[in-house]
């Protein structure tokens, strides 16, 4: 009696470990080659449109049916996933720093990945703008208004969100200019700014939902495309304010070469990213409120996406590696503002 119950316990334990492990492809079904695009939060609608167009083109070229899978989340979180084994064929993240981490930690793509495609491997750009409530009741016009008492600012967490890091650097750039490069005063400004943040979401989309759906906060620091999308989704509820200075955000794309090699999708992955530079995809970028790199197509959208003074990470912060280390890594300025106490 004793033996048989031990036996069943042992059997149960074995089954527990073995059965799930031997079923790696249980639900995987369907036709054609698969391509997994691991992307950041606000690109959902854009890549939905791109995927339809690319699939059509790929089939029209006689290369067969393909299936493009999407995964979205905070840019840093997604990079972490790819490092831990989320087998992306291509990554389309919010900033170069996150792809650098994949190259450095997991060696899934070469360190010089950013030179593989034109324009820093960023087929579209964006910037950081303010979203305020209809009629701008708090009269928010520029970065200086964000640190006023009683103004609630919504931004995601720079540790996990790419958009939040662009927000942070844009604020930093403005303060740096305003205080003539005095770092203590700049840090003081940023500290005050984050004192006004009641909710730190993990990703850009979480922040947008907090602001637009849950109606928390007076101003949302957001991607320009996310700001327009909010305006479209919640008509008549929000307005976009362009600050006096913002940052040129270059969300980069890259083939995760080791994964693509393993899946036999190297050619497809490359073609997919190159497709982003075609007139058709550039136009889709414009339609989804990204700034197209193609100047002719960008001109078409210049009324909606006005040109404002923009700093760049490369010129003003010495590149992502340096900016990441100075501001967002452990012990960087972002940690300082919290250790200084709220």
């Amino acid at each position: 009696m004793k033996r048989s119950s031990f036996l069943s316990l042992a059997l149960a334990t074995v089954a527990l470990v073995a059965i799930p492990a031997c079923k790696p492809k249980a639900v995987a079904a369907g036709s054609g080659t698969r391509l997994l695009n691991v992307s950041y939060d606000p690109t959902r609608e854009f890549y939905e449109a791109v995927n339809v167009a690319f699939k059509k083109k790929w089939a029209a070229d006689g290369k067969g049916e393909i299936n493009i899978e999407q995964s979205h989340g905070g840019s840093g979180k997604q990079a972490r996933g790819v490092i831990d084994g989320l087998e992306a064929d291509v990554v389309t993240l919010a900033l170069a720093g996150d792809i650098d981490v994949i190259a450095k930690e997991a060696k899934l793509l070469p360190a010089d990945w950013q030179s593989k495609l034109p324009q820093n491997s960023s087929p579209y750009t964006s910037t950081i703008v303010f979203v305020v409530r209809k009629g701008n009741p708090k009269g928010i016009k520029d970065w200086s208004d964000l640190i006023k008492d009683g103004t609630q600012v919504i931004t995601p967490n720079p540790k996990t969100s790419g958009g939040a890091r662009w927000n942070y650097l844009a604020a930093w750039a403005w303060a740096n200019k305003e205080y003539g490069g005095d770092e203590a005063k700049t840090l003081d400004y940023i500290t005050k700014l984050f004192k006004n943040v009641p909710v730190l979401d993990a990703g850009a989309r979480g922040s947008t939902t907090t602001f637009a759906e849950r109606k928390i906060g007076d101003v949302l620091l957001a991607w320009e495309n996310e700001a327009f999308l909010t305006k479209k989704q919640f008509p008549g509820e929000t307005e976009i304010v362009y600050p006096s200075l913002s940052i040129l955000a270059e969300p980069p794309v890259a083939v995760v070469e080791e994964n693509a090699k393993k899946h036999g999708t190297a050619e497809l992955a490359k073609a997919y990213l190159e497709f982003l530079y075609t007139d058709e995809a550039q136009d889709l970028a414009g339609q989804n409120f990204y700034r197209p790199r193609n100047e002719k197509i960008a001109a078409k959208y210049s009324n909606e996406l006005p040109s404002i003074p923009l700093v760049t990470v490369d010129k003003d912060f010495g590149g992502w590696a340096k900016a990441q280390k100075a501001h967002f890594d452990d012990g960087g300025t972002f940690d300082k503002i919290y250790s200084r106490g709220k």
């Binding site: 527990l16 799930p20 492990a21 079923k23 790696p24 492809k25 249980a26 639900v27 995987a28 996933g81 490092i83 831990d84 084994g85 989320l86 087998e87 930690e105 997991a106």
Partner: peptide
């Protein structure tokens, strides 16, 4: 995970647990 304790061995044998159905079944169990 790819860089976890059993990750390299699983990778060599082309078995996927995390970010795939087995991982979900395992976590649920």
């Amino acid at each position: 995970g790819a860089r976890g304790w059993f990750g390299p061995w699983l990778g060599e044998h082309n078995l996927k647990i995390i970010f795939a159905v087995p991982g979900i079944a395992l976590a649920t169990t």
